[in-house]
């Protein structure tokens, strides 16, 4: 089966002073559809950089990153925006909710970009809010939400368009243990029910215990690729 994500000799360098900092060194990885995987490692190990490349927010300095058969390195701004809009969901450490919008509007945003009808949007948003257990507070503003609720909204926003891949960058870093478990359990449930591929960047032990596969990064290189349990391929 063709991998949904294929990283091929990816190196990423950033200018640093007069030299350059190598964030990723010759990474080779493949992810199958439906995986619930995590990239773990200490700060500066390249987790977020790898996630950004997969999310087509960044491009590799060399090598290829294939996401849903599209080479991120060769996509135009418009094509990468389309890839993110249709197939990728993002969950951020600090939720990144749009402050002037309500919970409903935040979740609805991605569908507005897809030009879905009002009724389609309403149904999808309420469904997504139901997945994360927030169907009762659609009109709340992000400033009135707790940390756990904020991250649930972010999950609903990532999931509302039913993407193939969700990229979650340290999603539990700002949450207490109870909320962290609840959030991961929600994502795990969505992974199992919808077959969405989840890829985390984390160093949180609470997250790791739910993962099916853990890729250890150190100094920009894959130190260990660990399969914890059998994968959950959609097919």
């Amino acid at each position: 089966m063709e991998p949904i994500i294929k990283i091929e000799n990816v190196t990423k360098k950033f200018p640093e002073g007069e030299g350059e900092f190598v964030a990723l060194k010759n990474i080779n990885l493949e992810f199958q559809e439906g995986e619930f995987s995590g990239i773990v490692g200490p700060s500066g190990s390249g987790k977020t950089t790898l996630l950004n490349i997969i999310g087509s927010l960044d491009q590799p300095s060399s090598g290829n990153a294939w996401v849903m058969d599209k080479n991120v390195a060769e996509l135009s701004h418009k094509e990468s925006a389309q890839l993110r809009n249709l197939h990728l969901g993002f969950i951020f450490q600090v939720y990144n909710l749009l402050p002037v919008y309500t919970v409903f509007e935040n979740v609805e945003f991605a569908l507005l970009l897809q030009n879905k009808s009002k009724e389609e949007r309403r149904k999808a948003v309420m469904q997504a809010l139901e997945w994360v257990g927030l169907e009762n507070i659609p009109n709340k503003k992000p400033s009135k939400l707790s940390g756990g609720e904020g991250q649930r909204v972010a999950i609903a926003r990532a999931m509302v368009k039913e993407p193939k891949i969700v990229l979650a960058d340290e999603p539990t870093a700002n949450l207490d243990a109870t909320n962290a478990h609840a959030i991961i359990q929600t994502m795990k449930k969505l992974n199992e029910e919808l077959g969405t591929t989840f890829l985390f960047s984390t160093h949180d032990e609470k997250v790791m215990q739910y993962l099916n596969r853990i890729i250890h990064l150190k100094g920009g290189e894959v130190e260990k690729d660990e399969i914890i349990t059998a994968q959950n391929p959609k097919s």
Partner: peptide
């Protein structure tokens, strides 16, 4: 800036 980044992450083009 974060909001702009979020818009792009959610699928808006830079020109949008």
């Amino acid at each position: 800036q974060k909001e702009i980044g979020t818009y792009i992450a959610l699928g808006m083009t830079r020109w949008q």
